[in-house]
Amino acid sequence: MLLHIPNVLDAATLAHCTALLKQADWTDGRVTAGTQAATVKNNRQLPETSPVAQQLRAIVLEALSKNPTFFSAALPKRIYPPLFNRYGDEANAFGNHVDNAIRTHPATAQHVRTDMSFTLFLNNPTDYDGGELIIEDGLGGRAVKLPAGHLILYASYSVHRVEPVTHGVRLACFTWLESMVREPQRRELLHEMDLSIAALRGEHGETDTAVRLTSCYHNLMRMWATV
């Protein structure tokens, strides 16, 4: 799955995030990289314990909790506390890598199996040159560069990279999540069913067919989900 979710953050929230980011003290991004990723990672990150990161994290998690598209597609069981990165100047790229299968939070020791990853863009594409997120899909890779407040959700097992930022600064939030439904094909099927049920209700109201399909959806969830 490669899903673009628009307007996760509205204009007012983005303005608040921008003000917070102006106060940020950045550190070497390799602090959260795995062994392979650390060899190709060259960016800056907010320390996980910094007050600015904590405030931004709360904003992002609240926005995600209110976004029905995100929930439908990801069916999140656990979300690793979101992180924040900066690409620009000399620290401006992240080469091809695959996310670690398990992330362990240093403060809580809680394990998160990385089924899906996301990048939430915090400034606009006109603010920088380059910086595309390239997600390999077997067809040469898809380039993603979204407006501020928009999110891309994708499989954590995908090989991906961030192209060099040649002018300006790219700011983003990123993290990984463990889904209640582990198998990607089952997750995608449930998401398509959810979208179809919503469309059916929008066109015809609460019909017997919509009720039966909703029953099928939730029975599949009972079969496949772990909570």
Rank of each mutant, 00 (worst) to 15 (best):
T39C: 11
A24F: 00
L75P: 01
I59H: 09
G34K: 11
K41W: 02
I5P: 01
V98T: 15
F70N: 00
A19V: 12
P106V: 04
L64G: 00
P106R: 07
Q55F: 01
L83E: 03
L56D: 15
H97G: 04
A12R: 13
T69C: 10
S65D: 00
V98H: 12
N85H: 09
A74N: 12
I79L: 13
T32C: 13
R78A: 11
L61I: 02
C17V: 08
K22Q: 11
N85S: 15
P51I: 06
L64C: 01
I5N: 09
V60Y: 02
A53F: 03
H105T: 09
F84R: 12
F94Q: 01
G88M: 02
W26Y: 12
V60T: 01
F71M: 10
P81C: 15
A11M: 13
V8L: 08
E90T: 08
H105V: 08
P81I: 09
P76S: 06
A101G: 09
T32V: 06
L46Y: 14
F71T: 14
A73T: 10
G34F: 08
H16E: 15
E90C: 05
E48K: 15
P51L: 04
G29R: 00
G29M: 03
R86P: 02
L14P: 07
L75W: 08
G88W: 00
V60F: 07
A58C: 08
F70R: 00
T13K: 12
A109Q: 13
L61H: 10
L83P: 02
P82H: 05
A109Y: 11
L20W: 00
N7W: 09
Q36P: 00
I102Y: 05
W26F: 10
Q54L: 14
N100G: 04
V98K: 14
Y87A: 10
P76T: 04
A19E: 15
A12E: 10
A63Y: 08
E48I: 03
A73K: 07
C17Q: 12
